[in-house]
Simulated assay, not measured.
Amino acid sequence: MTVQQKISYKPYAEKDFSHLKNLTGISDKTLEIHLGLYSGYVKNTNALNEKIIELTEAGKSGQPEYNEIKRRYGWEYNGMRLHEYYFGNMKSGGSELKESSAIGNKLQEVYSSLEVWKNDFCKVGAMRGVGWAILFQDPFTKTLSNHWISSHEEGNVAGFAPILVMDVWEHAFLLDYKPAERSKYIEAFFSNIDWAAVESRLIK
């Protein structure tokens, strides 16, 4: 007897980041283009889910087309989610990272000072290649550490929670800075960090 295969996924909704305007050192035009790219990741993630449903219900799981979609999924999904973290940890004018704050204290448990942590994070962000600089938290030890993620999916640490996410693909800054001026973009990014949003991501 053949069992009919039925699966379903809830579509992902695009988040509203229209409040992100007048950022320091990151133009509204750059944000407009960047948000358009984010929208594409949401649409592509949903499209892949729909195709997975179609192929599964047609009994084509494990066939070449299905396999390639499964391999592609991490790229589109992580592209969607990492952009949400990135846009979600910025606001016009930014805010101050205080030593006495919860995030400040957690950083100083690992790094001798906030300046030492920032220098390390910026050095990670300045690495050659396209990808992301991410401050992760280990869910088991609660320790914070800086990491480089190539593309969207290479280098993610299983189970670690993204706390601060910085996009260092060239599309994040190329309208405002030359390719060799990534360090200027990184400083601009720091001017716009919403530390309350970052702190809210900490695992208690």
Results as ranks from 00 to 15, higher is better:
Ser183Ile: 10
Lys123Leu: 12
Val168Ile: 11
Glu170Pro: 11
His34Trp: 13
Ser61Arg: 15
Thr2Tyr: 06
Ile52Ser: 09
Lys91Phe: 07
Ser61Thr: 15
Ser150Ile: 08
Glu76Phe: 06
Ser151Ala: 10
Val110Arg: 14
Val198Cys: 02
Leu174Glu: 15
Gln5Lys: 14
Ala102Val: 08
Trp117Val: 04
Asn78Phe: 08
Asn78Gln: 12
Glu68Tyr: 13
Asn146Arg: 09
Ile163Pro: 04
Gly59Asp: 09
Gly131Trp: 06
Pro162Cys: 08
Asn44Lys: 11
Ile52His: 08
Asn22Ile: 01
Pro179His: 03
Thr24Ala: 07
Ile163Ser: 03
Ser39Arg: 14
Ser61Ile: 15
Ile186Phe: 03
Gly59Ser: 13
Glu96Thr: 14
Ile52Phe: 14
Pro162Glu: 11
Ile33His: 01
Gly131Thr: 08
Ala188Gly: 01
Gly159Gln: 11
Lys29Glu: 15
His19Gly: 05
Tyr177Gln: 03
Ile163Asn: 02
Arg182Gly: 00
Pro139Cys: 09
Pro11Val: 04
Trp148Tyr: 10
Val198Phe: 02
Glu50Lys: 13
Ala13Thr: 13
Lys204Asn: 10
Asp167His: 07
Gln63Arg: 05
Tyr12Gly: 00
Thr24Lys: 12
Ala172Ser: 13
Asn49His: 12
Gly88Asn: 01
Ala197Trp: 02
Ile163Thr: 04
Leu144Ile: 11
Tyr86Arg: 00
Trp169Arg: 09
Gly74His: 11
Glu54Ser: 14
Met90Lys: 04
Lys204His: 03
Leu164Gln: 04
Phe160Tyr: 15
Gly93Asp: 04
Ile149Leu: 06
Gly88His: 00
Leu31Val: 06
Gln108Leu: 01
Thr45Cys: 10
Ala58Trp: 09
Ala47Thr: 12
Lys51His: 12
Ala126Pro: 00
Asn146Trp: 00
Ala133Asp: 08
Asp194Gly: 02
Gly94Tyr: 07
Ile52Val: 15
Met127Glu: 12
Gln4Lys: 12
Lys15Glu: 09
Ile203Ser: 03
Asn105Trp: 00
Lys91Ala: 07
Val110Met: 07
Gly125Asp: 04
Leu55Tyr: 14
Ser101Pro: 07
Tyr85Ser: 03
Trp117Lys: 00
Arg128Val: 09
Ala58Met: 13
Arg72Val: 00
Ser113Ala: 01
Phe190Trp: 10
Tyr177Asp: 05
Asp120Tyr: 08
Lys91Gln: 10
Ala180Ile: 08
Ser18Leu: 02
Ser8Cys: 05
Val42His: 05
Asn89Cys: 15
Lys29Asp: 15
Glu187Lys: 13
Ser145Trp: 09
Ala158Arg: 15
Ser39Cys: 04
Thr141Asp: 12
Asn89Ser: 10
Leu37Val: 12
Lys118Met: 15
Val116Glu: 12
Thr30Trp: 06
Ala172Gly: 05
Lys204Val: 03
Leu37Phe: 11
Leu164Arg: 01
Ser191Thr: 00
Lys15Cys: 00
Phe87Thr: 00
Gly129Asp: 07
Val110Ser: 13
Val157Lys: 11
Gly131Asp: 07
